[in-house]
């Protein structure tokens, strides 16, 4: 086990990190960033995998399978929509090489 107090340190430092990383984000990126952070908590997939690996009862296997299914949806869906949104953000400078609509 990660030691109790050590876990609290990790928790505290990660909380400050999250706050600092986002604190100066412009409004134009609010939607993609929310989607991006939504993708990052898709890491729940590894937990769901571990929980299902450990399950020995049928009930545990059923719920664990559901968990992996949901978590994979979170991770993959979160990535796809975030990437789609951010891929479209272009400045006037790099407009020329990307073509654009006409």
């Amino acid at each position: 086990m990660i030691d109790g107090i050590l876990a609290l340190y990790i928790f505290m430092l990660a909380a400050f990190t999250g706050y600092e990383v986002i604190s100066r984000v412009p409004v134009i990126l609010h939607t993609p960033l929310m989607s991006g952070s939504n993708f990052v908590h898709g890491i729940v997939l590894v937990g769901a995998m571990v929980a299902l690996f450990r399950a020995e009862s049928t009930l545990g296997q059923v719920i664990g399978t559901l968990g992996v299914f949901l978590a994979a949806g979170n991770a993959v869906g979160g990535y796809v929509v975030t990437e789609r949104m951010l891929e479209m953000f272009k400045s006037s400078g790099n407009k020329a090489k990307s073509g654009g609509h006409h």
Partner: peptide, 22 residues
Amino acid sequence: FVLDNAAMIIAGTVVGSAGTLL
């Protein structure tokens, strides 16, 4: 914390605080 999984602790907490600010 329950699964003793540092990646989940860090990523989850970062999103928790960043998401609260957002």
